[in-house]
């Protein structure tokens, strides 16, 4: 096999792994959009918020330490204890549920029945708000997150491929773990929405709000539930991205990367989010590999959007989206 082809295969594999991470973020969008028709721009910031909270809890940081110091003087920083990763993850999940409740109670409840675009704007406001709160709570410096996930070159794949092609593929252990976790997460979500009472209620709300209300499903509860599940997905995505590239502001920008994934897959489809993520991941890595050097590189910044744009012109509802029917 020629070198170029082997390189290309490696690029495709890495693209698939990156795509899984995009899909993880996109999943959170799809869940909320299906259940409440809200396009939640804050999903990326939720991932950032979750990751920062996790790091903060693990290191025993005092929340709002900077603010307290600024107002009252003093130099509080840490409680002086460290919390094991698993317990910290559970605590963070508690915070995300609380957040979901607060969002529903103070924001979304008051906006029921508004136009979708107003709801979208509200989530942009929420994104800014959360980002500010996260920075105030835990400080804005870059943090490292280590919950014990394996990282670095996977030696087994390197050795095996070296034996076959005479060239070792570089694949990060973390990406493999992320793929497995993403698969588990999707399976869990599907099982949850198919086989549990709350999951069925969630699907009912997604189908028809009024019909769901009329058979006695509490919309308020379901929306809190959906935001909590989205918060959980954000936490998982935050852990993955945070471990990969540190917990910092750019984490919230992956929300923007998830948008073309959604457009490709369709806003309403969970498989769509996965397939879209894989297509975008592979597409942008291959494009950067093949065309990037000719046009100055860094094409990953825009390739996904342009691909989605061109694709949408031919199929406006995305790959798996519900057919858009318009009536006057």
């Amino acid at each position: 096999m020629s070198d170029q082809l082997i390189f290309a295969i490696e690029v495709i594999l890495n693209g698939l792994m990156a795509g899984v991470l995009y899909a993880l973020v996109a999943l959170g969008f799809v869940l909320i959009y299906k259940a409440s028709g809200i396009f939640n721009y804050a999903q990326g910031v939720m991932a950032l918020f979750a990751a920062m909270t996790l790091v903060g809890i693990m290191n025993g940081q005092v929340p709002f330490a900077h603010l307290i110091n600024a107002i009252f003087g003093g130099h509080i920083t840490h409680f002086g204890w460290n919390i094991p990763a698993l317990l910290a993850i559970i605590l963070t999940m508690g915070v995300m549920v609380l957040l979901a409740w607060a969002v529903q109670q103070f924001v979304m409840r008051h906006l029921v029945g508004q136009e979708p675009i107003i709801l979208f704007m509200a989530t942009i406001g929420l994104a800014y708000f959360l980002e500010g709160v996260a920075d105030l709570m835990w400080g804005s410096e870059i943090k490292t997150l280590d919950v014990g996930l394996p990282q670095g070159l996977n030696v087994w794949i390197d050795d095996t491929t070296y034996g076959i092609f005479g060239y070792g593929f570089f694949i990060d252990n973390l990406d493999i773990v992320a793929t497995v976790i993403a698969a588990l997460l999707v399976a869990a979500l599907v099982a949850f929405s198919q086989y549990t009472k709350q999951g069925r209620a969630m699907r009912a709300v997604a189908d028809d709000h009024q019909a769901a209300l009329s058979v006695g499903i509490s919309l308020n509860f379901i929306w809190v539930l959906v935001w909590s599940v989205a918060g959980f997905v954000a936490l998982v995505a935050g852990i993955m991205w945070g471990t990969k590239s540190g917990v910092q502001f750019s984490l919230s920008l992956i929300a923007l990367k998830a948008l073309p994934v959604l457009m490709l897959g369709g806003f309403t489809s969970i498989p769509g989010a996965i397939v879209g993520g894989l297509i975008i991941g592979v597409g942008e890595k291959l494009f950067e590999f093949a065309i990037g050097p000719m046009v100055g590189g860094a094409t990953e910044n825009w390739f996904a959007y342009v691909l989605a744009l061109i694709f949408l012109v031919f199929r406006p509802q995305g790959l798996f989206g519900e057919k858009i029917i318009e009536r006057v």
Partner: peptide, 9 residues
């Protein structure tokens, strides 16, 4: 950030 976000909401 908090104030701008809060105000928008």
């Amino acid at each position: 950030l908090v104030i701008v976000g809060g105000l928008i909401i």
